[in-house]
Design a protein around this nucleic acid. Sequence first.
DNA 1: ACACGTTGTTAAAACGATTCAAAGGATTGC
DNA 2: GCAATCCTTTGAATCGTTTTAACAACGTGT
Lengths: 324, 324
Amino acid sequence: MNIKEVAELAGVSPGTVSNVLNRPEKVSPTTRRRVEAAIENLGFVRHASASTLRAGYSRTIGLSVIDIGNPFFTDVAAGVEETASALGYAVILGNSAGSRTKEERNLRVLAEQRVRGVLITPSDEDPARLDRLRAHNINVVLVDHPPHRADQCSVAVNDVVGGKLAVEHLMAVGATSVAYVSGPLTIRQCQDRFDGASQTFPGAMRLIQMPTMTARAGEKAAQLLLDSGIPDAVFCANDLLALGVLRGLTRLGVRIPDDVALMGYDDIDFASASAVSLTSVRQPTYQLGKVATELLLDECDRPSAHAHQQIVFQPELVVRESTR
Amino acid sequence: MNIKEVAELAGVSPGTVSNVLNRPEKVSPTTRRRVEAAIENLGFVRHASASTLRAGYSRTIGLSVIDIGNPFFTDVAAGVEETASALGYAVILGNSAGSRTKEERNLRVLAEQRVRGVLITPSDEDPARLDRLRAHNINVVLVDHPPHRADQCSVAVNDVVGGKLAVEHLMAVGATSVAYVSGPLTIRQCQDRFDGASQTFPGAMRLIQMPTMTARAGEKAAQLLLDSGIPDAVFCANDLLALGVLRGLTRLGVRIPDDVALMGYDDIDFASASAVSLTSVRQPTYQLGKVATELLLDECDRPSAHAHQQIVFQPELVVRESTR
DNA sequence: ACACGTTGTTAAAACGATTCAAAGGATTGC
DNA sequence: GCAATCCTTTGAATCGTTTTAACAACGTGT
C-alpha cells in the first residue's frame, strides 16, 4: 500500500497525492477530498524513509543525555518529547550513561538516521564529534551547556551562580567548613558549581570526587566524609548524590541538619519528600527541554530566518529542613 | 558522499561496498580492506533511509510509555535503550502521558518510520491500534501487561499478587480498615492491584481514584482521605502517589506510621530515601525492559525460529518504616 | 586441453515518495 | 472569437542503498 495505490483508487497521479500530503493548499478541494477518502480507505501510512530519501531531510531529532535515570534529564526529556511531538517530529533517544564510547555510538546512529538535528548534553568538551554531525548537515543545540560558540544555539542554567547561591546559604546558616561532593570534574556542571562555590567560600573547601552521580555513589561518599573528619556543611553536585549522602550519614549516626547541614542541586521532585527534606538549587528543567527543542526546530524549519541564541537561565535557591 | 563515491575511490562497484557493509565474509580480504580504507577516508556514513527503503526493514524500534516522568518507566527505558543500542538498534521514544490521543499520534509516527517493532505499555485495553501496527508488519511486545494472546510476546509483573502481598502485610501489622489510593481503574495495573488487594482483605476497602498517578495527585488524595475519616492503613497504586500522600498527611498532622500505615508500589529508588522510608512492592524494572527488548529483537531478527513468550515476573515485598 | 565448480565482482533493477517542468483546461480581456 | 493568463494536474527523473542474476577468473580433475 503505497502512494501509487492511493492515486489509482482516487483516480489521480501520485504527484497529486504527494501534494495533498505536503501542500494541501495547492490541490483543489474536490480532488483533495477524494484523495483523503482513498487514504482513509486503504489505511495508507506514508513511508518516512522514502520521503526522507527523496526530500533530503527527515522529521526526526536526536536526544543524547548523560543519564536517563536522573530525574533532571527525565524532566528535560519530557519537555523535548512533548514539544517535538506536537510539531510532528519523532525523538530518537540516546543515553550515553557517562561513557564516551556509548555517546559516540549513539551519535553515529543518529547520523545514519539523518536526523534533522540533535539535542545533546555533551559528556565532555571535545567539539570534534559535534563538528562531524554538522558536516552531515545536522543541526546541534547544546542542552545544559553554557554559551560556547556564536554559531550555535545553546540552553543552559548558570551553574557558577548556582554554586555561589549554595555556599552563600550554607555560610548564612553558620557553616565554617564545607565539603563539596562531586561527580567527575570533567563534567562541566560539576566543575562550574565547584568554581562558584569555592569563589564564594573564604577558606579551602574539601573536595570529594565520585565516579558517578547516583544515590549509591552518595552513600559511599558519606563514609569518605566520615573517615576524613566531618565538616559543618556538605554541598552535593546533584540531588541524587545528596539523597545518598543523607541516607549514608544517617545510617552512620550523623544527624542532619543538627550535626551537618546538607544541600543538593537540581531540586528534583523527590528532594522535598526525602527523610529530611532537602535544600536544593532549582533549575527550570522542563523549560530547558522545551526551549532547546523550539530553537532546534526553528533552525531546522526556517534556516534563513533563524538567529542563533545562547540562552542562560538563572537558578533559584530552595531552602528546606536539611539546612535548618 | 554516498556508496558510489566510496566505490569509485576504492575502485570497485557499489554492490561490493554494500557487501562489505552487510556481508563482509562474501568479500575477499584485500578488497575489503581497500573499501574499508575508502570509507574511513571519506568519513562515509550509510544512509539509513535508503537502506530501509530498499531492504524493506529498518533498525529502529519504538518505545511507547505512559509517563516518562515516572521512575518506573525510566528504569524500564534504561533497560530498553541499553539492550537495543548494544544490538545496533535505535530507540524512538513516545510518551503518551496518559492521553489516548497522544498515544495514537505516537504510534502513527512509529508506523511512518516503519520501525521494526514496538514496545508498548498500552494505556487501555483497546487492541485495534496494535492490530493496525501488525498490519504494517511491525512486531509488538507488550510491556508491563499480562499475557493476553498466544501470538504475541508480553512481559509483565503479576499485579494481582502484588496487591495481595501488600494487603497481607498491612493486615499482619494490624490494619482493620484499609483505603486504596489509585490512578484511573481503566489502567490495568491499578485495577489488578485493587483486585489482589480486595480479594485478600476480608472487609470492604475504601477506594480513592485520582486522575493521574503523580506525587501531586497523592497530596490531594491525602485531603480526601482525611475528609472521609481516616483508615488504619493506606495502600497506594504506586510510589509517587504514596510519597504525595505521605507529604500531604504529614502536613495535615497525621503521623506515619503511628496513626496510619502507608505503603506504595514499584519500589522506586526514592522510596527508601523519603521522609519516612516507604514500604513498597518491588518490581524488576530494568529486567522488564531488557527482556522485552530481547524478545522483540529475537522476533525481528529470527522470525522463523522465534517462539512467542508471555513472561510474568513475581513482585516482592519490601518492608520499611512506613508500616512499622 | 576441456569441461566444471568455485569464488569474487559487477551491472542494472528495484524500493516509495517528492519535485518540477510542462501540459491541460478553464476563465478572462479585448 | 482569439490570445493571454491562471489554476490544477501529470509524468518522469531522482534520492542512496540492496539485491540478484550473470559474468569473469581461476584452479582442478579427467
